[in-house]
Simulated assay, not measured.
Amino acid sequence: MKRRVFIKFASASTLLFSSNIVIAKSINKDTLAVLDEVYEILFPKTNTMPSSKEFGALEFLVKNISHKSFDDYDKNLVLDGTKDFHSTFPNFLNLKNKEKKQIIEDIINSNDYAQSWLSKLIYYALEALLSDPLYGGNKKQLGWKSVNHKIGYPRPKLTYGQKI
């Protein structure tokens, strides 16, 4: 990985955190594709755990990021970080898995902004893996089954404090 690539990626963090300009957020097709692929690198299928696609990490994130209670800082970090990642690594989606893993590993080890972005993605993927399926993740309760979780009762009937 070239030094200039990391400098470019790091400079984006300065713009993200110092800008007072409000930008309308919409999740475009490229953003979704990058997020989906990054999630597959971070959460691949193993003998005991489902992949991010199987447990619905991206679906959970998309469903929850658009809710009014979703933290604006997290929303900006996820969306702007993905946009910055895609502009820094425009061929990411065309690379082989080994090359994708190497990029993720390299940015984790050398860039605080990228670490924060990936950390937030991991946080929401773990929520998707272990939350009630009502919230959009944990498809077919695969997350619970993979860790032998006993479901707690009563389970939620509605999301986000809606009245029954």
Rank of each mutant, 00 (worst) to 15 (best):
S87G: 04
R3K: 15
S69K: 12
S18W: 14
S87E: 08
S119E: 08
Q102G: 08
E105L: 11
N97E: 09
S66N: 15
G143Q: 03
V147I: 12
A10C: 12
K53T: 07
W117D: 07
N148G: 15
N76L: 08
D106L: 08
F43Q: 08
T48V: 11
Y123E: 06
K145I: 03
F92D: 00
D80V: 02
V147K: 12
N47L: 13
I21N: 09
A24D: 15
K100D: 02
K75S: 08
L79D: 04
Q141P: 10
S51I: 01
Q141K: 13
P90L: 00
I65R: 04
V62R: 00
W117I: 01
V147C: 09
R4I: 15
L93D: 10
A57K: 05
K63L: 14
N111I: 01
K145N: 15
G137W: 00
K29V: 15
N76C: 03
D72Q: 14
V62Y: 04
D106Y: 11
K150Q: 15
L130N: 07
F17I: 08
W117V: 12
D36N: 12
N76T: 05
A125V: 02
R155H: 12
I65F: 01
L35V: 04
L142T: 07
L42Y: 05
V5N: 11
I23E: 10
R155A: 15
Q141S: 14
P90H: 02
K83M: 11
G143M: 03
L121S: 04
I27A: 03
T46L: 04
A12G: 13
W144N: 15
S66M: 14
L77I: 09
A10W: 06
S52T: 06
D132R: 09
M49P: 05
